[in-house]
């Protein structure tokens, strides 16, 4: 019992974080149809920003170098992490949304991710280079006198509150004409513009919002793990969040949370406790093959994911919600 509890608590905490991330990515990919192939870079931005805001100045003689080190109290680092990640998301979006093809956004995000990775790795003065930042204290742990090995005792409640908040925002969007308009952009941008929707601004807004949510997830990650370095945001990580969204049900907030439970809680956390066979990299490699294969199979055989896109209708005189189902492969000619 005493050994199992931390294991489950850790897995649970990761599921909370990934549920938050999935909701953010779902807003971009599932709802608005934006392909952002470097979502996890915004998680990293959030993690680093929250990390260096929570940490104090690098200890003299430690050889560590990073910017800021402001020692700010909870929850300011999380808020600022969201703002900075959202800001970068918006900047990236500004350069590409004027172009029509969704390929270009996907390409540019991928490139930006690689470059961000290079910059963080190579400029040691920014976030301590390849070694990354570490020793980030858990917020409120000292206030409540929680021992360092049990940081989940404060972080799980904090994470749940944030998840509830993020879910509420996403849910309100689902219920509003705003959410409907975002879906119209996904289904056909030209038609949306022809009916007065400012598609550029709306997509920009979703990029900012989704990336800000990624930043919050990153902040929680660094406060939970206590460390963050470049090896934590390789391209695979972005794919894992996509897997949660696609397997769970793009466009459905509860669906993607379910996806996060499956992908992060079952597959990834579960595989950590598999025995090592062969080389050290073999088990993760097989796990990634499974995730990649599942995503492709689900995209083909069940594009709605486990739970399809359903949304309650706002204007219906309070009778019922509509279950809306899509046919396979008919997500429309959203691209020109």
């Amino acid at each position: 019992m005493s050994t199992l509890l931390p294991i489950f608590a850790t897995a649970f905490m990761y599921v909370i974080i990934y549920a938050i991330l999935s909701i953010g990515l779902n807003l971009q990919y599932g709802v608005t149809g934006i392909v952002n192939f470097t979502y996890y870079t915004f998680v990293a931005i959030g993690a680093y920003v929250a990390g260096v805001l929570t940490l104090g100045k690098p200890p003299a003689g430690s050889g560590e170098t990073y910017i800021l080190g402001l020692n700010l109290p909870f929850p300011i680092p999380i808020v600022l992490a969201a703002l900075v990640a959202g800001l970068f998301g918006g900047l990236l979006a500004l350069t590409v949304f004027r172009r029509l093809r969704s390929d270009y956004l996907a390409i540019t995000t991928l490139c930006a991710g690689t470059v961000a990775f290079d910059i963080v790795t190579n400029s040691t003065g920014l976030f301590n280079g390849p070694n990354g930042i570490y020793g980030v204290p858990t917020p409120l742990a000292s206030t409540f006198g929680v021992p360092p090995q049990n940081t989940y005792m404060v972080l799980i409640p904090i994470g749940l509150v944030i998840l509830a908040l993020v879910w509420w925002v996403a849910h309100c969007i689902d219920l509003s004409p705003y959410g409907r308009t975002l879906r119209a952009i996904r289904e056909g941008r030209d038609a949306a513009a022809a009916f007065g929707k400012n598609t550029l601004r709306l997509q920009l807004g979703v990029m900012i919002l989704g990336c800000a949510i990624a930043g919050i997830g990153g902040a929680l990650t660094v406060e939970f793990v206590g460390a963050f370095n470049p090896s934590a945001f390789e391209t695979v990580e972005t794919f894992v969040v996509y897997a949660a969204v696609i397997l769970g049900g793009p466009g459905n907030n509860l669906g993607v949370i379910l996806g996060a439970v499956l992908v992060q809680g079952v597959i990834i956390q579960g595989s950590l406790y598999l025995p090592t066979i062969g080389a050290e990299s073999l088990v993760p490699a097989i796990r990634n093959m499974v995730i990649g294969g599942m995503v492709i199979l689900v995209l083909y055989f069940r594009p709605r994911g486990m739970v399809g896109e359903t949304r309650p209708q706002l204007g219906v005189p309070r009778r019922r919600g509509l279950g809306v189902r899509s046919a396979p492969g008919s997500r429309g000619e959203a691209d020109s």
Partner: peptide, 26 residues
């Protein structure tokens, strides 16, 4: 053949990327 939208095709190649890379690693 099913005329999946570009977004889905991009996701599939992204998934293929992960699979191929994992095969190489394995």
């Amino acid at each position: 053949r099913r005329r999946s939208p570009t977004v889905v095709l991009l996701m599939v190649t992204f998934g293929l990327s992960l699979i191929l890379n994992s095969v190489i690693l394995a």
